[in-house]
Structure formats: C-alpha cells, structure tokens
Design a binder for these strands. Structure first.
Length: 114
RNA sequence: CAACCAGGUCGGACAGCCGCGGACGCAUGCCGAAAGGCAGCGGAUGAGGAAAGUCCGGGCUCCACAGGGCAGGGAUAACGGGUAACGCCCGCCGAGAGCAAUCUCAGGACAAGUGCAACAGAGAGAUACCGCGCCGUUCCCCUUAAUGGGGAAUAGGAGAUUCCACAUACAGUGUGAGCUUUGCCGUCAGCGGCUAAGUGAUCGAUUGUAUGUGCGAAUCGACGACGUAAGGGUGAAAAGGUGGGGUAAGAGCCCACCCGGCCCAUGGUAACAUGGGUUUUACGCUGUAAACUCUAUCCCGGAGCAACGCCGUGGAGGGACACAAGACUGACCCGGUCGUCCCGAGGAGGCGGCUUGACCCCGUGAGCAAUUGCGGGGCUAGAUAGAUGGCUGUCAAGACAGAACCCGGCUUACAGACCCGGUUGUAUC
RNA sequence: AGAGGAUUUGUGUAACGGUAGCACACCGGACUCUGACUCCGUUUGCGGGGGUUCGAAUCCCUCAUCCUCUG
C-alpha cells in the first residue's frame, strides 16, 4: 500500500470514538484529519460478533476492501471502521459498496475534492 | 457381504492474478568517522487436533522467607508399574453391561462415633399391632328400669354353643288310686265281685322340649400376664437362604448344604484366586461417607510474560554553575518567569524475554503395555490493534474452529476420508 | 491473564435429599351500564448432559450462558 498504514495506538482509537461517525447496516466509520501525509486505518470487531476465527475473517475482509480501493481515498486521515453483525455474513461486494458509500459520506474520496 | 468393537493417520486439493508477517541475504539508495540506522530488492518459511475451555500437573521469572514439629486447609482413594510431576497413562484384580469383540466404574472404612431413611407398613435399625402357644378370669360394698361407681387380691372383666348332673314345668310311654260305661254273677233295683273299654289324681322311672343352677367338662370368643419372632405382602430396603429335626408355640435352638465374615495353607510383588477350618458361654453385622467423620498418601508463602530486565523525547523533582546582559508581565518601581550542565526514579512508547524443547522422525535393545536405554538424522510460527485474505476456474460440497511465555495431561466441539486388527451373523469354496 | 458469583412460571424471588411455594402479571369467572379497584379460580417452572442415592431443584462432575472485580 502506497500511503497507508495500520492504526495501532489505543488513545487515537479513543479519540476517534468521540467524533461523529457515519453508519449503515454493515459498518460504522469514524474519520479525523491527521497532520501526516498518510492514512492510518484501524478495524474494530467486537467480541459479541462471534468467536475468534469469525472475528479474524471479518477483519481481514474489511482490510481487503480498503486495500483494493486505496487509490480512491485522499491521504491524511485517521480512519476507524467498526463491524456490525451483518458484516459477518455479508458477501464481499456488498461490503465494498457499504464501505465506499460511507467513505463518500465522510468526504474521504478523491472525487469529492473536485 | 452386513452389523458392531478397538487403535492409528489425515482433516479440502490443484492452477492463475492481487496481497500479509517474516529468519536471512544484497556488489542498491540516503544519513553517519565508524558501529549502525532508515528505505528498497530478493526471500527459506508461516496456525490446530483440538490452537478452545482454563480443570489438574510442572518449567521459567520476580517478591517474601532461620530450622523442625503439631494444629489447620486442600486434593486423591482396590493393587502394581510408568513419568519431571499429576487428579494423567498402562497393566492387572473385583463389580456391572453385552451372544461376543469389547466397554463402564470417585472402586478405602458405616465390625470407632454421630446423623438421615419421606409415604406406605405392626415394625426402618429397632419394635411387639395382629397372630401362635401356655396359664388365669375370684371376692366385697353402694346404686339402677337397663346400668353405673368404689375397694381388695399385682392387673383385668367374665360371652356363645354343645355335653353332663340337678331342679322345675309341659308332653309321650309305663304304673295306676278313683270315676264312667259295657258284659257276667249274686236277686229286679240299690249294693258288691269279676272282666273289658274309656277317663285319670298320684308316683317314681324314662324320653323329648323349655327354663334355671353348677369351685362341672369340651369347643369357640373376649380380656389379662408370660413366651415367641415362623407367618402378616407394606416398602428401595424387613434381622443370611433352602430343607429337616425340635418345641406348648417357635426361633441358627440344633443338623446338612450354600452365601458372607474371620483364621490357616498354596499360587501371585500385590489387590486377589483356589482349597481347608470356623472348637469354647462367644461370627451372621440394613443402606447411605458425591452426610459429618475416620484412615492412608501427597501437597500447602504470594504473584503471574500486562511476570521480569533494559532504553526512555517531553514534563515534574533534586544538585551544581552563572547570577551579567537581555526578553516577557507591568504606565513605572518592587516582584515574578525564561538559561547551561549533571543525577536517579519513572508514565506514554520501544527493545529484550521469544522459542533447541522433559522436542520430532527413523532404526534397534528392554518391557504384555504405558514408557525407556542406545545410535543416526532434523529444526518445524514467533506476531504485538496481533500475520493465512480476496477474486476466478475444475473436483468436492465438507465440519469444529485461529497461536500470544513454554511443555505434559484432562474435558468439550467436530463433516468426512484412509489404514491396520478383532467379534458376531450370513453366503460360497 | 487471574479471581468471584449467578441461572427456579412472562417478571422478581423462596426452599432441610421426600407434594416445588409466594407476590405481581396473563387468562377465566364474580362485581359494574362499561372500565379501574376488589374477590375467587386455572395455566405456565428447577439452564443442558451424566453420575451418587430407594429417591436430586438440592450432593458430585462436565458443558453452556450471563454478571462483577483486579491488572
């Protein structure tokens, strides 16, 4: 990935949870500008959604959506994506559609800059 | 071939494209005097049989601690072995299930003490309700229509049937005074005698019936005392079982056999098995300890890799130097803040711990086996918001499920495939 | 990672190893013109599986779910 890394610091997660997120049936997305030139993306899957292997698979699929669509995003943001229970069973293209529409709502995509 | 039992192995495969962690390597770029750092490129390799639950046993690390014993707490429980250790494993014994292969069992001690055993049932850890057997059931006083009350004898209340004896009444039979009638005789009558019939007091005998009496008898019943525990069909469980003798009735009271306990012998390391004995006043004992408890063995200081060690920008603290100039605050003065160097603790964060280990594979020796000796070979995840994913095609439709310091077990979840062995049944040769 | 606790009817809760109660709710009936209140009655249960015991909600093991605490 060209300009993205994973978000690891717990206090940044906490800071992002206090912002106003956007949500639909599958996902919840929090975003906030950072002063870097890169995006930092974190994924949260709660213990309520299933056992460990189910949570792992869900997290991988969400990360894969970001990786395949990274070119559409604008750099310089911290992003946290929270999975909801529908996301566990959702097919991959539904997940992609949900992710991109939420990102558009939050103003993270390149096309919004024009 | 079918059904079943036991053990072991695997647990999506192949191909393409795009991706992730990453030991290690690089004659690559930048920084640096160097060590090295950052980036780039290549890249061995990269989840499980349960990684899970966290139920046991250890290793490892830190803190605390002079030694020993008792008490206390916890775990385990036939016996023998294995192991670093275990509550695990193997073998074996006993009990239970199954036609069998085989499987299951917290499987010490209620013969030390305490507790509990609902309902039902006479009785639940001890009884005597019914039953069975023997013996006994008498007398006095007051009172009533029946009855009831009191006292004495230890205590209690005494009924039915039959028989016997006696008494009375009635009836039959017998005897038979007397009376009546018939006939005969003496004379017609009266009267008398004889005969026959009828009636019939009385009498004692006898039979039957009824009533009463009896220190009467028998049987049954009631009550009381004693003996007994065979029977009672209630219960999950009822004082070892079966048969015989015995007895007033009965009983391990006695005998025979069986079961169990105890003792001895033999076999076995042992649990245990087999055989024998159980004599004297003297073995017969309910179940429950996953009830308290007792016995034996073992363990017991605490915490857990977020342990622990190292580095540690900033900020706060302490010390040293300089206290001159300047800046800020302020209308001005006084006053306050701002400097450089060093120190140890330490929050965020980073690094180590971190994978070579009671390890795995092969061969071989010991052992029934668990396991273990020897030899050879191998290195097989090491992440740290946590690496295995997405898409496509073919086959298949297919589970349970994701390491976080590491081992040995246990428990739980699990579609299917394969291998080896065994039992039973059927068929064929 | 390490501790502690709970699970009983729709809800909240009791119980010595021997018939599982109580309150509210629901339903039915009475009262009322109707509803509420009140009275009477019925139904609905021991988280799942195994074991010990004659007998388990209770004792033991195991699994599941939930809650709380510490770092």
């Amino acid at each position: 990935m060209k300009f993205s890394s994973s978000l690891k610091l717990n206090h940044i997660f906490q800071r992002l949870y206090h912002t106003k997120g956007v949500a639909d049936g599958h996902l919840v997305l929090y975003a906030r500008k950072n002063r870097l030139n890169v995006n930092r993306v974190g994924v949260t899957v709660s213990k309520k959604l299933g056992k460990a292997h189910i949570r792992n698979r869900t997290r991988r699929r969400i990360r894969e959506v970001y990786r395949l669509n990274e070119a559409q995003f604008r750099p310089g943001w911290d992003i946290v994506v929270v999975a909801r229970s529908k996301a566990v069973e959702a097919p991959f293209d539904k997940l992609t559609e949900s992710y991109l529409s939420l990102a558009r709502k939050a103003g993270l995509l390149q096309e919004d800059a024009r």
